[in-house]
């Protein structure tokens, strides 16, 4: 490999992620100056072990947005998966691996249902997933009897930092999921089809792509990722919480949009979404470190989301002008 190819590659990476990395660097610099404890490896570890939940949900959301759909049920599906895990382990004494299987199956089944109804009956996924949001939350409460259920320390291993690394299996899993999905998107036929479906559904169908199974597949995958996401808080708290994941759909959509995913479909990048998640996580952690008042936290979070999107839009315009 010669040097010119290398620099070209580096340049394209900088172009792609430069805006977000800048935003992230500004935030980190700001909080490091404002607080004593922020600029430490411990902070990075804390954030790393707190983001798997949002990261996994946001990856699925990126895929769904890319095919021009939306899934509002992610938070409820996540809670339901966590609830299933909790009940299987605490009430039926299933081993961890089997309970994880059960919770992933739950997530995938919810995602499949939303996708299938939306695609087969051509009902906007906004409506179907809104229905699923209610159904899954209700089912979560049914399963848990509306109570927080203690699971016990068997489940803690998922969020327990490993050895010297200080990173939890949940975090490593989330990173693995980011890389895997990014690979699928940029290197496989399925990825190309997803982009085609999101860009122009009719044209994709006309050119012979079987759009229905791909679309349903994306919803199922998103559900499966919600199932994975549900493991993180359940393991961290060693409890299944009937109120888990309320409102996470909006954070996930925010992370996707900060990462440059188009709400109209056809454009998205999972690594950018991860950077979007990091922007949100760094902001939340930093504001908590500064003990910012709750009302102001909300205002600042909203403003930063808008600014991050502005920076990214400027970056894209500049990219288009320079190529």
């Amino acid at each position: 490999m010669n040097i010119s190819v290398n620099t070209k590659h580096l340049r394209s990476i900088l172009l792609q992620y430069g805006g977000l990395l800048t935003a992230l660097a500004i935030l980190i610099a700001f909080f490091s100056l404002q607080t004593d404890s922020f600029f430490q490896i411990g902070t990075a570890r804390l954030i790393a072990n707190q983001i798997p939940e949002l990261t996994l949900v946001a990856i699925g959301m990126t895929l769904v947005l890319m095919i021009g759909q939306i899934d509002l049920s992610v938070g409820s599906v996540m809670a339901l998966s966590g609830a299933v895990l909790g009940v299987l382990m605490a009430k039926y004494d299933w081993p961890l691996w089997a309970a994880i299987f059960g919770s992933l199956l739950t997530g995938a089944a919810c995602g499949w249902t939303t996708g299938a109804i939306s695609v087969w009956f051509r009902i906007p996924s906004f409506i179907v997933s809104l229905g699923m949001l209610e159904v899954a939350r209700g089912a979560t409460r049914r399963v848990l009897n509306s109570n927080t259920l203690t699971i016990g320390s068997d489940v803690a291993v998922i969020s327990e930092p490993i050895g010297g690394l200080g990173l939890s299996p949940a975090f490593l899993l989330a990173i693995l999921a980011v890389l895997a999905v990014q690979f699928v998107l940029s290197k496989t036929v399925m990825g190309r089809y997803c982009i085609a479906i999101g860009t122009n559904l009719a044209a994709a169908r006309m050119s012979g792509i079987r759009t229905a199974p791909y679309s349903i597949g994306v919803f199922t995958l998103s559900g499966l990722l919600c199932g994975l996401a549900g493991l993180a808080p359940a393991s961290l708290m060693e409890a299944a919480d009937p109120g888990a994941g309320i409102g996470i759909e909006l954070s996930a959509i925010a992370a996707c949009v900060i990462g440059g995913t188009s709400l109209m479909g056809g454009r998205g990048n999972v690594i950018s979404t991860l950077l979007g998640v990091l922007v949100i996580a760094v902001l939340q952690t930093g504001l908590s470190r500064m003990s910012v008042e709750d009302a102001n936290k909300q205002i600042i979070t909203g403003v930063v989301i808008i600014i991050a999107v502005l920076i990214d839009t400027a970056r894209r315009r500049w990219e288009r002008a320079s190529t």
Binding site: S37, Q40, D241, G243, R289, S291, D294
Partner: peptide, 23 residues
């Protein structure tokens, strides 16, 4: 030393408390 709202929520409390304890 510190008093913040975690809006009654478990995950939110985890995030706020770990920041608080670090700072």
């Amino acid at each position: 030393v510190d008093s913040q709202s975690a809006q009654w929520e478990m995950t939110k409390a985890n995030e706020v408390a770990s920041s608080s304890l670090s700072e």
